[in-house]
Amino acid sequence: MLKIVNLKAAINGKEILKGLNLEVKPGEVHAIMGPNGSGKSTLAAVLAGREIFEVTEGQIMFEGKDLTTLSPEDRAREGIFLGFQYPIEIPGVSMNNFMKTAVNEVRKYRGLTPLTAGEFLKMMREKKELVEIDSKLTNRSVNEGFSGGEKKKNEIFQMAMLEPKLAILDETDSGLDIDALRIVANGVNKLKSSENAVIVITHYQRLLDYIVPDFVHVLYNGQIVRSAGKELAYELEEKGYDWIKKEVDQLEAN
């Protein structure tokens, strides 16, 4: 589904991703962990097509298409969803209107007719139940005045609405209380199928108790320096990143 080969990306001439490789197949859950500032959010942004990042080398193939040639909106329409680490507020734009536009744009791209008002409202209702989000939130402007946790829940709600093939969730667990964490994780699990895939970026092993990953990767200094099964998460929780950093720095020094 997603194949990243030797990806290098920079911002303002500063290289952040330094030759990153990753392959994600349908049905898989990947966790990406790594120290602050290692490039996790940058990877997410580059996949989503954020233009301030320049891809200087490498390849990103998604469902056989070269992602780097597509606009951010077309990537979204192709089925890439990014759950933002810091969701953006859009005052004055109702969640209803925002989601309706988004859903129908995606449908149009896929050659489907727009949903009628009735169909759309039904879908909203179902997905709200699925991710246990309060109607009070969806009646407001997009993320405006939402608490940190509410914003994260709203990301999962939007993911449910858009039914992406590949969801990249950037620290969706941070800022959530215990109940919200469970709700968000349940939402992700309910939406999971053999057709789609999820990349969760997280700092905490806790989330991975709920969303069980097939692979755990460590991103350090712009590269994936270690990949293993979910047991790696426990090891990291216990030992931190220092031992990996040392190993990598050692290797590079040689």
Binding site: E73, L82, F84, I88, F98, E105, L162
Partner: peptide, 16 residues
């Protein structure tokens, strides 16, 4: 620009 990108990421073009 972050608001526009947020919309883009949901499949909404910049103009829209």
């Amino acid at each position: 620009e972050d608001q526009i990108f947020y919309c883009n990421q949901r499949g909404i073009s910049t103009e829209d």
